[in-house]
Design a protein around this nucleic acid. Structure first.
Lengths: 233, 233
DNA sequence: TCATTTATTAACTCCGGGGTTAATTTGTCA
DNA sequence: TGACAAATTAACCCCGGAGTTAATAAATGA
């Protein structure tokens, strides 16, 4: 039943010609590794599998990233950096504080939905008690900008007498992140326990509106959370 | 440099006497495994290490649970079941709807803080897209009771003209879970990015009060989110 | 043009950890 | 009382996956 007719396992011919292209090789590895770590976690991801999905060899992973943890750290910094770039595109300078806050909540909610890799890697990092994030020099700086944006909105809102005195940017960020993050991170278990009802496009839009409305009601004096007065049907 | 002075590695003497106690052996394994899976995840946990921490041998793990996944599933069902027991102790029947909702939000927030194993295992399960939770026969049923409690409160609130017409038990649960869960699940990365300020006992109490107040403002007609009017200092 | 450094290839090592074998003891019931 | 099932013990297997070795091709530049 030997299908190869007695041929010796053919030693793979060493590639006799190739281009040097370190930047794209590195980027290729990083892209594949991001997928794999996001899908399976640090322990669950498989270096051989990552190598197989790249257009290069396993040795290159160790050449550029040292070891599995080094690769994971590079992946982590990569997703944080790309999310920051997305956030920096937001500009609320021209808007009045109330409208700016509404836009910021909506944008945050939407950004989380469209960044599943980021969400999963943050989940994984929390499982590791942020051990690798702590080692990063750049990540703590990255998150400052979102707080600064919120602080500016809060300052202007209070100065105009529109916002409540107790409104605090960091607390507000905690709150806005919580439902934006949870909505994506816990979708699998939530749906398993309670069904898919909340994850139709229509219902997601409704949740976004209600959450936004609720944040505004908390922050803005006299704001009525109107979206809660009607059922979404 | 032989430190053992030429002694043959002594074959460990087989224990010559022991008691049959299947129930407690099983419980012992399950307890250790819960710690280990919660700490390191499914792939990250180590069967040899789990065995070492039990008062029995590795073989017993396979004897009672089949394989690593079987053990993980048993752990998962265990933490879900014990949380349900905690929830079932809550009784809001005697309270008016507004006070009942306030108590439910506070209790949920507190229950998450005191159930770190549950939180971590749910996080891990979400990383696996709830693959193992889906196989469970009992877990989907467990989560019904919390929705029923909320539905009862909502019905009574609307009947008395206190709650807004759009208030929905499932949406409310999504909202209450989101900040209660996120507060614990993402503590490591949140603290790394923004500092520990929100995780002092005083500030945690404040967050609980503000979140509760905000939920009430969303659900209850004319409720002012008063806690947001003062800063927490 | 050739010495040197950088980038790349294929093949190899090694051990940790999931899972098993086989023997032995404890309890049960006919 | 002894055959049988259930519970437990220690030792073993083995493969997959993290990490390496060694050779060689491509660029660099004096």
């Amino acid at each position: 039943m030997e299908m190869d007719g007695g041929a010796q396992t053919p030693k793979k011919e060493r590639k006799t010609s190739w281009k040097k292209d370190p930047a794209s090789v590195r980027a290729n590895i990083l892209g594949v590794a991001t997928d794999e770590f996001a899908a399976h976690g640090l322990a669950g991801a498989n270096i051989n599998e990552i190598a197989r999905k790249t257009s290069t060899s396993k040795r290159m992973i160790y050449y550029y990233f040292g070891d599995k943890e080094g690769l994971y750290c590079a992946v982590l910094e990569g997703v944080y950096a790309s999310l920051r770039n997305a956030e920096d595109l937001l500009d609320f300078a021209g808007l009045d504080p109330i409208e700016a806050l509404r836009r910021l909540v909506e944008a945050t909610f939407e950004a989380h939905v469209t960044s599943p890799h980021f969400i999963r890697l943050v989940m994984i990092e929390n499982i590791h008690n942020a051990a690798y994030l702590r080692k990063s020099e750049i990540v703590p700086k990255l998150n400052r900008s979102i707080i600064e944006k919120l602080a500016d909105i809060c300052d202007r809102g209070k100065a105009m007498g529109l916002f409540r005195s107790g409104v605090d940017p960091l607390e507000l960020h905690w709150l806005i992140s919580s439902f934006s993050f949870y909505n994506v991170s816990n979708r699998a278990t939530f749906s398993t326990s309670f069904g898919e009802a909340l994850y139709t496009p229509v219902h997601q839009a409704l949740l976004k509106a209600r959450a936004t409305d609720m944040v505004l009601a908390a922050a803005v004096i006299g704001h009525e959370p109107a979206s809660w007065n009607t059922d979404g049907t």
